[in-house]
């Protein structure tokens, strides 16, 4: 199929309008094309009413940004030349299929000859043809001035030295960045380790302290009970000595045995484990306190009975009631 060129369009223009000559039409079309190309070079779009919109826009900017961050000497910039036809032109071109509409297919309906495409992935081939790539080199770093003792360096040697200097500087920069990143990562890891160790140490210290406190409390309670039993035993010894041998009184069991028997039902020393909580320790203390209360009460009753029923030399015939 022969393609229509500028000459054919100019002929058609002059045939359509008698006022327009073929030379004027040709000149007009060439200037029209020049204006479009110059405007696109400034990265501006051009709108032609009834025909369409020409555009020249950058694409793949992320890929360009990664190249810049990597410190490349030459960075590629990607552009796309686009043309969006006007709606009237699009409809006039597709006039044979303009009445066709997309239809929803039921499940199970298949067509072997018709391909299936995931929505959004169609129509990417034609744009690749109009993709452009421009390599932009960054300005070279300043080269130190040559000394007076070496005036015979040629231009080629200077360029070679500049390229090697650029390469070494780029490598050094990259190496410094890598080392700085590694150092930062190591510092962060070290800080995390130290914080974890500190927290672990604090936890163990707290547990040890609580264990010591509970052990001390238990010891203190044991001491008090021992003191009480000692006092009671002393009181028991005096009335035994003062009683008359004529009366065969059944000796009362020593309070220590009574206490030991009453204390037998108590659980052995609690084995403090690392997993005990404050609540469990409190419950244990409350249980110990609750057991001691009746014991001490009984001891007090016994002491009071001994006090009232024993005969003192200075108080004969005294009636406590």
């Amino acid at each position: 199929m022969d393609r229509t060129g500028i000459n054919e369009i100019a002929s058609l223009l002059s045939a359509k309008n008698e006022k327009i000559t073929k030379e004027e039409a040709t000149l007009f079309l060439k200037e029209w094309i020049a204006v479009i190309s110059d405007t696109l070079a400034e990265k501006k779009a051009v709108e032609v009413t009834g025909f369409g919109t020409f555009s020249f826009s950058p694409i793949r900017e992320r890929e360009t940004a990664t190249q810049i961050e990597a410190g490349s000497e030459e960075v590629p910039y990607f552009y796309k030349i686009g043309f969006t036809p006007h709606a009237s032109l699009k409809n006039s071109v597709n006039i044979f299929f303009s009445n066709f509409e997309p239809s929803l297919l039921s499940e199970g309906v298949t067509f072997d000859a018709i391909p299936e495409v995931i929505a959004g992935e169609e129509g990417e081939e034609e744009y690749i043809y109009n993709h452009l790539q421009k390599m932009v080199s960054f300005p070279k770093p300043p080269v130190p001035a040559a000394t007076k003792e070496e005036p015979a360096i040629t231009a080629e040697e200077t360029t070679a030295e500049e390229t090697t200097a650029e390469e070494t500087t780029a490598e050094e920069i990259a190496a410094e960045e890598i080392t700085s990143e590694e150092i930062a990562a190591e510092e962060i890891a070290a800080e995390e380790i130290t914080t974890e160790e500190i927290t672990a140490e604090e936890i163990t210290a707290e547990e040890i302290a609580t264990e010591e406190i509970t052990a001390e409390e238990i010891k203190a309670e044991e001491i008090t009970t021992e003191e009480i039993t000692a006092e009671i035993s002393e009181n028991m010894i005096e009335p035994e000595a003062s009683t008359e041998p004529e009366q065969a009184v059944e000796p009362l069991p020593p309070l220590s045995n009574i206490l030991s028997e009453s204390l037998q039902h108590l659980s052995p020393e609690p084995q403090v484990s690392h997993a005990t909580t404050h609540r469990e320790r409190g419950r244990r203390r409350r249980r110990q306190h609750s057991v001691w209360v009746p014991v001490l009460g009984g001891m007090a009753i016994i002491v009071a009975a001994l006090f009232f029923f024993r005969d003192t030399p200075g108080k004969s015939g005294s009636n406590p009631l």
Partner: peptide, 22 residues
């Protein structure tokens, strides 16, 4: 002139005739 040129090109494209502009 621009309106006439657009009409001519649209007619050619509607007839499925490709256009080549140098």
């Amino acid at each position: 002139m621009l309106e006439a040129a657009v009409e001519v090109m649209n007619a050619q494209l509607a007839d499925n005739n490709p256009i080549t502009l140098a």
